[in-house]
Design a protein around this nucleic acid. Structure first.
Lengths: 136, 136
DNA sequence: ATAAACAATGCAACACTATTGCATTTGCAA
DNA sequence: TTGCAAATGCAATAGTGTTGCATTGTTTAT
């Protein structure tokens, strides 16, 4: 029932596919790829519908997308209060080199870097590689 | 002539396509995508040959690959002395939101982050977004 | 200089991720 | 309950990247 109200809060229609997607992501501690979702959803929905639902979620700040080191998108629920206009995303994306899972890890002091002359920094992303707690 | 000796130094055969690729990347200040290279090479080489040459270069530490925010690979010559086994890559990858070009920028103090328990950090990458010096 | 050995290339086919158009179904509000 | 806009399913398409195999080219040893 949580997913239905989450959708409504963002002015989105509550459909079976959307609720299912949100519940899968809520139950998964790591970011999930489209292929993961497609497998878990099974024949319940078309591939294209998943893509469109995920894009809609991202535009409304419900989830965020991170590309793994193969360039494949993985999706995770936003923990902070993101919205369409303010998208707070100050955490670290960690991909395990063993299981390939991507984790959104909190980080206490987000690093600041100084840019060379002429380059205006808008956003800095941290992408880490290593071995996750389950594969250790 | 520089590209030929660079190839020889890494134990690679000196072929026209490889020399051409290296010269293009040497003459470009930002990382180039496969599509960029394909366009500049023109009909001189097959697409697959470019992919294979770039993979070979990366394996030998001649170039490094960075994925842009669309997940597309971009390639740039390694400035440090990388080899097959030691791949030094401690710089920042900056993608301009206007022209989409990716620049490898030097960084004075590479940030260090502490990981949650159970997560072993192997490599930390910095990916920045903003406006480059030419688009400013 | 030449030939053999092996690596690089070209071509065709394929896998995968992602998007678009259009007809149909569904959710929701009046 | 009905109408309308939004969401979905299906087919087709684009883009990136890989693999197999025959052919060409580079290098090494003679």
């Amino acid at each position: 029932m949580e997913s239905a109200s989450l959708l409504k809060r963002h002015g989105l229609r509550s459909t079976p596919v959307r609720r299912l997607l949100l519940e899968i992501m809520d139950a998964t501690e790591h970011a999930v790829s489209h292929a993961d979702l497609e497998q878990q959803v099974g024949g319940e929905a078309d591939r294209v519908t998943l893509y469109r639902a995920l894009n809609t979620f991202e535009e409304h700040g419900i989830i965020h997308k991170v590309l793994d080191r193969e360039g494949v998108a993985r999706f995770a629920l936003c923990m902070d209060n993101c919205s369409t206009h303010t998208h707070v995303d100050e955490h670290l994306h960690f991909q395990c080199t063993v299981c390939s899972n991507v984790y959104c890890l909190p980080i206490e002091h987000y690093p600041r870097v100084s840019m060379p002359n002429g380059f205006n920094l808008v956003r800095l992303s941290l992408v880490a590689e290593g071995v996750c707690k389950r594969c250790n």
